[in-house]
């Protein structure tokens, strides 16, 4: 063996012994492992994709899990038609760029069928999303739906398994969950039942932003600071849109804001911010004193248990 080879061996040894793996690498590998288990064990899975930051991270993880092949499942979006146009544009562009199949089903379809009855157009539509989701699951016969929910988002989610079993009515029974041990997932369901799978369960809001930065992911512009017309209602500010117009006496303000989550336009409040880059968002996130949902989702604040109730009804 030559001297150079000897030195190379030594250097290699040194690298090996100091090898450490970062928390993002560990989380990424865990998520890839989960997605591959779904692909291998479920008959007809789908990946729920909204165009929001968490589901954009999910797409990158799916690329890491399955490339150079295509995804072994379609992308599915349940569109409330209360979404921000920038998010829908991003959804369509990403699906097209990846060359993956995107299935969109709209709450409007359910409204036409009569399975959803809307009383007030300006009210949030999140409570109805589960109806269309369950109809879509039945239409395609999906036995597993992967979603980008995280346990740090909300108390009820903190208690949910990564593979979360649903009965034939799509219901979650928090008191009767399957024990989940090691990384050995029970993916089995009977006909008509299905499983919701949350590959990024263990990620936090901060991890998502760090990953978006590290992977240079393209996300909708409304996540970055921009000037927007807003109305102050109660403790929150709501963006002015075709769905939300000022009531008599309400003043429209223009503020520099960004969205931490991008859901239903009628109940998703932005936060005041000047962060124009991912690094600046990370900076703000590390010093923020309010939770992501607390700051932005007015429908989760109606009761201490609102998410738990929605999940029981089939919301993912």
């Amino acid at each position: 063996m030559s001297e150079t080879e000897n030195i190379m061996k030594l250097v290699e040894k040194e690298i090996m012994s100091t090898h450490t793996i970062s928390h993002l690498d560990v989380l990424e590998s865990e998520s890839i492992h989960i997605m591959r288990e779904v692909a291998a064990e479920c008959k007809n899975p789908a990946l729920l994709f909204s165009g929001g930051k968490d589901s954009i991270v999910m797409l990158r993880l799916a690329e890491k899990a399955f490339r150079p092949a295509k995804f072994p499942f379609p992308l599915v979006h349940i569109d409330t038609e209360h979404n921000f146009p920038e998010v829908i544009a991003c959804r369509d562009k990403l699906a097209a760029d990846l060359g993956e199949r995107l299935i969109v089903r709209s709450l409007e379809d359910s409204i036409r069928r009569g399975s959803i009855v809307i009383k007030d157009e300006s009210k949030p539509r999140n409570p109805f999303q589960s109806v269309t989701l369950l109809e879509t699951i039945a239409e395609f016969g999906f036995d597993a739906c992967m979603g980008g929910a995280r346990r740090d988002e909300e108390k009820a989610r903190a208690k949910e398994r990564i593979f979360s079993f649903r009965d034939e009515f799509g219901q979650w029974d928090p008191k009767n969950q399957r024990p989940e041990l090691w990384d050995t997932y029970n993916t089995r369901v009977h006909n008509g039942e299905n499983i919701r799978v949350f590959p990024i369960s263990n990620w936090t809001e901060m991890d998502i932003w760090e990953y978006i930065g590290r992977e240079k992911l393209h996300i909708p512009e409304i996540y970055f600071a921009h000037k927007r017309e807003l109305i102050r209602r109660g403790n929150s500010v709501i963006p002015v849109s075709h769905l939300v117009q000022p009531k008599p006496g309400e003043k429209v303000e223009v503020l520099s804001v960004r969205f931490r989550t991008v859901g239903d336009m009628t109940c998703t409040a932005p936060v005041e911010s000047t962060a124009r880059t991912v690094d600046e968002i990370i900076e703000e996130t590390s010093i923020t004193r309010i939770t992501e949902r607390g700051a932005t989702r007015m429908d989760d604040q109606t009761s201490d248990a609102s998410m738990e109730l929605r999940k029981k009804e089939g919301y993912f």
Binding site: R151, K155, A156, A158, K159, P174, S201, N202, D304, A305
Partner: peptide, 23 residues
Amino acid sequence: LTDGLQAEREQGITIDVAYRYFA
């Protein structure tokens, strides 16, 4: 903070494994 579910809050007990995150 850690009693996540409505049933638990009513009874003041913890009924399942809950995961928490901090850094």
